[in-house]
Design a protein around this nucleic acid. Sequence first.
DNA 1: AGGCTATTTGTTATTTATTAACATTGTCCT
DNA 2: AGGACAATGTTAATAAATAACAAATAGCCT
Lengths: 255, 255
Amino acid sequence: MSEFTETSRLNFIVEMLKINTSASIAEIAEACHVSQMTIRRDLQKLTETGQVIRIPGGARIEHWRGAERSFFERLQKMGHAKRSIGATAASLIKDGESVVLDSGTTTLYVARELRIRKNVVVFTFSLAVLEELTSAEHIRVELTGGVYRSSSHDLIGPAVAKSLTSIYADTVIFGAAAISLSRGVMVHDPDAQYELLRAGRRKVLVVDSSKIGTEATYRLCGIEDCDLILTDKGISNDALTRLRRMTEVQVTNLR
Amino acid sequence: MSEFTETSRLNFIVEMLKINTSASIAEIAEACHVSQMTIRRDLQKLTETGQVIRIPGGARIEHWRGAERSFFERLQKMGHAKRSIGATAASLIKDGESVVLDSGTTTLYVARELRIRKNVVVFTFSLAVLEELTSAEHIRVELTGGVYRSSSHDLIGPAVAKSLTSIYADTVIFGAAAISLSRGVMVHDPDAQYELLRAGRRKVLVVDSSKIGTEATYRLCGIEDCDLILTDKGISNDALTRLRRMTEVQVTNLR
DNA sequence: AGGCTATTTGTTATTTATTAACATTGTCCT
DNA sequence: AGGACAATGTTAATAAATAACAAATAGCCT
């Protein structure tokens, strides 16, 4: 076994963990010919970058690594607003119904709250939504096809829209990048979402209030095309009044 | 917060971790109104059943839980035979080519060895294959649509076959439940696999030698329909001779 | 090269976490 | 009631994590 530079040692540790999922600090230190303290510091760095997880006396690696980890980290930091929106959206879905779920952090909270439903069919192109629902016994998840995109942990490309054409669910719950009072519902990446809107009868938009009154690149649809908009208490009275002239808006209230 | 029975407390801890991915022993103990020692013992049980992971001072939960956990455990226990087959199969794929990868443990090893390729497009309905390749920078993974099945961590149903119809790749690498010298390549669940075979030009079958000479429920295709069969050294000379009368067979040899 | 700085690593002491052993409580069964 | 068993709590001993400091190393500037 040769000597290491610092960075090559970090890589070596990750590779070591890929082989056996976990290893003790003593084992790693011996394999690298450095002190345990050095390995502790290495593991701290690797933990910060999300590459490994510390366990008492050692470390282990997750099956899912890399980009989608930052996705989950983003998710964890978000507060009660999205959770409250998610719970309200989920309450709209009754047992036995079918629902199309958009990709995005807010809709992920919807998925989380949907777990208690029974005999629900969920269509989605978000792997995060799928993951959130795999442990739910009575929920069937149907994934669209598509090319995997790690940054948002979902599927993109023409196959997504193509898969959605054959779906018509009771409800579609979707997010948006921005809500412009004049221009309507706006998104960054409209490809799949046009088809998404067509894939459900009742169209429910879930957005946290920080998005309201902002702009983004593409217009997805008009405010009035949504059957219901769910948002949190952060919305201004003015914006609320104006939105309510166009469609039904519900401000979620759960603590 | 009410009192707990022992088993309901274990469930509560898991649910608690599902919400926030991780929690400290002190937090859990307080939430449950029991001593930290009791929580330590609970976490030990939950660690043994694979439901949580201990971290120093607390516990956390994996993003993927439940059925697919046993899937990865199965995978780890498997020996060099499949790994060797996987490496040989991966060596057949050149940079820039496209390949269809079946679901299954052997093909998962192929995926693992494919990570070093560049500009390869991989089509699959196996989420395990997708996971294996997400960290590979230069590989594009295109997932078929379908209903998620946790036991094998892949997608099933009519959408799988439908997605495959529009694909024609350079190579298809597939597994089998059994190889009958008289009846041909046999599988347990033929639905998607018929279409899988059509989705690639060169058809490569990967099977560990224990499957050769056994039987399963459905016939997928004849031996002679495979362009190449990859297996390990465990194959008998007799079987090898007979298979080679029908198609090319390569016995992998990597240590 | 010489000397400066910053980084990495090792050592030690201190705090914190884990384990093991034993005491207590409570439940179930006869 | 009394005994067996499981679950929980308490304490002491052991192990691990952290923090603080010292030594070694690698650049980098003149």
